[in-house]
Amino acid sequence: MDYFLQQLINGVTLGSIYGLIAIGYTMVYGIIGMINFAHGDIFMVGSFIALVLIVALGITAATPVLLLILALALVLVVAMALTAVWGWTVERVAYRPLRGSFRLAPLITAIGASIALQNFVQVSQGAKNKPLQPLFSGSFQLTDGGADGSGFIVNLSYIQILIVVTTVILMGGFTYIINNTNLGRSQRACEQDRKMASLLGVNVDRTISLTFVMGASLASVAGLMFLLYYGVIDFYIGFLAGVKAFTAAVLGGIGSLPGAMLGGLLIGLIETFWSGYFSVEYKDVAAFSILAIVLIFMPEGLLGQPEVEKV
């Protein structure tokens, strides 16, 4: 039971990270109907930007707690802004010129952009793994392992709390933006019918750009969380995380924000439980199999709308 609880905590943490990335996939798919293949790599770039900033600011575990939190908040904001520029640029260079063109074309440019981003980071930051010393090492001990010390000790670390809390706050903020602001309204209008939206005076190009910007900044938050949680990153983390987050988006129902979050949580839980109870080697197979099974048997996902074939 205690082991189960520990896996649950780990799974929710991991799921929060996947959920943040999945939102980017789901928003872009909703608005322009394409899989933004480079999104996983935007997440990776965000993670690297956060790492560089942490090292540049000299943040270590020795920094006083209050200062540490302030500095990390600064890193978060700057990383979100800079990663957003990356997301914007990818859209501007690789997708916008192909809008309304052949449907395969943006998929190919997306794959090209993904390859280019990975190798750009490999060239500019080097191919080696980048380990970061843990910044928060403390944790709450939820169980004491029993009187004789034979039980399992369940830890809820500070960093896990930080990740989940940040995710919840950001999710709330973005849901508010989508539901209650002008930007959110024009975004939903573009999702429904892009041509009509533009006839009604919505600046479609700008709305799509902003979608990429939001997706990228959420991905950079996920990047920072990933860095703090695992403590090591390399230029290749974007591919797997991207595929898993996409799985999450599909599982939750592509196009649906709460769906992306729910899907992220489920994928995180499934992955941790799979590694915890079955085999670590095949944890990616588990994620990929779920993707295939979901797409085959319930392509509309958990919270998405079913598609009716029009004849």
Partner: peptide, 21 residues
């Protein structure tokens, strides 16, 4: 060696934008 894949990815984007078909 180092820049090969970077250029490769960028060329994929450029050719596609230039000739989507």
């Amino acid at each position: 060696e180092e820049y090969r894949m970077l250029v490769f990815g960028m060329i994929m984007v450029v050719i596609m934008v230039w000739k989507p078909r």
